[in-house]
Design a protein around this nucleic acid. Structure first.
Lengths: 355, 355
DNA sequence: CCGAAAATTGCAAACGTTTGCATAAAATAG
DNA sequence: CTATTTTATGCAAACGTTTGCAATTTTCGG
């Protein structure tokens, strides 16, 4: 209820007839302050309801103890999980995390970089927009030796620390899995090639085809933002004319789910008539019927790696210029019903006979 | 690559042989700076790569242009959606949002309040822990007239702005819905009563029973944190002895989903043998088979309301002390298959015959 | 009990802005 | 061409810390 309270260390100093510097040091547990002075100061600080002013401290020693985090959106499973982990981890070390969303807009990402720099964050982690190919808006950070880590959606040819999933292996594994389950004509629904993730997955897809002597057909691969709407549109195209594919590798689970629903409408049985695999292991993939095979990207692990990288960079002497270094987080195929082999009448098969 | 760059307005002033104040005013578009000076200053600012130092500015006029947001966790659908909206909305108005997670730990929530205060946030929005009944750790904000808004999980008897869902109506609507679909013995799985949400929903549940002359039985209601594990445990209890209930009102969708899976194992048909309703309208509720009836709480709308409240409070004269005021966001029952009436052989019914 | 070393404490500048007030320059009126 | 208003710029203090260095006090060996 009181106004203009805002006690400062000056108030404590006056109250105790000590110098400001002594109070400051006492509160920070500086070694050459006597134990009883510290005691006294802290007690008085409590009594007055003193709270340190982070901005003043930050200004003085140009460290905000805040780190920035830029992700496309936090309402999506994968980035949300990573953000959670990063935030909790860094908080343990006394850092705040400014979580920001680019909403997959390059323009917003650029603005974000600018204003984040203004708050003098101590470090920055970013998973870029789908469409970011020029990363120069992050140069300010590099130029001022502010630790910068990219994860998941990362740049290439940009001197910076990178933590990414094994998307090449992911693409390969999924495709080979489908082939082994009997697919001969596999459609791949990819995100735009402006994003590293999809480039790598496509490469894995192609490699698997080649290895198993299946022809790669341009017409069997689609590039677009992986939304529900786009997935529906692609379905229209795919199923407009025969022959229909017998396997679909969707680069995210939203797409996989949408396609499965579409197939149901066409009275196509999954996995008997067509097999579907998604990516990211969204919780929905497990829960839907039939459950969808997907790729676990271990978001929590990735989050930890990113947090660790940030912390490490922050305690390095400022002089070392950042270089490109890549850390790869493993992936794991989670086999479920949507891509199961069709073994005569196994229980799973029966269940899917309906409709 | 350069070091100790950090251009300041002083550099601009020197370069242009102007005073620091003029530069400052020019950059802030102060009215009594001539147009050409502004032009000149801005051009030079650009040339030098000047970036304002938010901490210095914040220190000077004690506004950080940052607002705090405390939620239990951002990896859950409901708070994630709200956070997204709040963040985007406030960003439009030039504010940063410091999104923090209490992980449903009161201890962490208290620590968060403390450190958020230290960063001198301009306002704070919080959805509290399940177990927060004493809110005095937020007193600092009230005492210093820092706008404070609670949402979803809110305190009672605490002088503060509150934005909440209509949980009473939600509880009532769900229960009545189950009754109208023919249920006579409805179990309610509630969260702990330390949290307002569940108190209200329980009240609604009881009211609906009463209205329809069904007896309320203490043994038919369970209070616990709504995790998957707890849900399984409750299932064990419920189905350990007959009679089994014919309707279940779960206070979140994770619980509803878990129960449905459990029922499937028992060869109980949903909705023929038992009807299930969840809460929050998690994306999984729609996608699972059978789809689960749930309650949409319009998280985006709630987010907008919270953001609006924060903005409004921030531009109020600081002197007005905060009072309790309640804003209620509507809810809507989303009817799906899990609670459908058993009408002989409608198509939906047939589909569920399997197994 | 003296003097030097060790342990404490204090002074004052600095961090980069913003802003009330004073001053200087330009515009207008008489 | 003054006198007066209007417009534009500059001075200097303040925001709340931290920290190098100087100053003071305490400790202790001899």
């Amino acid at each position: 209820m009181s106004k203009r309270t805002e006690k400062t260390i000056v108030d404590i100093a006056e109250e105790l007839k000590l110098s400001i510097s002594t109070v400051s040091r006492a509160l920070n547990n500086h070694p050459n302050i006597s134990a009883k002075t510290k005691e006294k100061v802290k007690k008085m600080a409590n009594k007055l309801g003193y709270r340190p002013n982070a901005m003043a401290a930050g200004l003085r020693n140009s460290r905000s103890r805040t780190i920035g985090l830029v992700v496309p959106r936090i309402s999506m499973f994968f980035p949300a999980t990573i953000s959670t982990v990063i935030q909790n981890k860094l908080h343990e070390h006394g850092y705040h995390v400014l979580i920001c969303q680019s909403n997959d807009s390059l323009e917003q990402e650029i603005a974000l970089a600018e204003t984040l720099y203004s708050t003098r964050i101590d470090a920055l982690a970013v998973s870029s927009t789908l469409y970011t190919t020029d990363f120069s808006h992050f140069d300010i950070f590099k130029d001022n030796n502010i630790p910068l880590v990219f994860f998941d959606r990362v740049p290439k040819d940009y001197q910076v620390k990178v933590v990414k999933g094994d998307d090449y292996l992911g693409g390969f594994t999924v495709t080979e899995h489908l082939i082994e389950k009997g697919c001969k004509d596999i459609v791949h629904i990819s995100g735009p090639l402006t994003c590293n993730l999809y480039v790598d997955r496509v490469a894995g897809y192609k490699h698997a085809l080649k290895k198993h002597k299946l022809a790669f057909k341009k017409s069997r691969i689609f590039y677009q933002e992986l939304t529900r709407e786009n997935a529906l549109q692609v379905c229209e195209q795919i199923f407009a004319k025969q022959p229909w594919p017998d396997g679909i590798f969707a680069a995210n689970d939203t797409t996989a789910i949408t396609i499965m629903e579409y197939c149901r409408k066409l009275n196509l049985r999954v996995p008997e008539d067509i097999k579907i695999v998604g990516y990211s292991n969204d919780p929905r993939a497990e829960i839907i019927t039939p459950s969808i095979t997907s790729v676990d990207q271990f978001p929590a692990l990735m989050g930890e790696r990113v947090a660790a990288a940030l912390l490490e960079l922050m305690q390095q002497p400022v002089t070392i210029p950042q270089r490109y270094s890549e850390e790869i987080v493993p992936i794991q195929l989670i086999e479920r019903v949507s891509s199961a082999a069709i073994v005569a009448t196994r229980k799973a098969g029966v269940r899917k006979k309906l409709k």
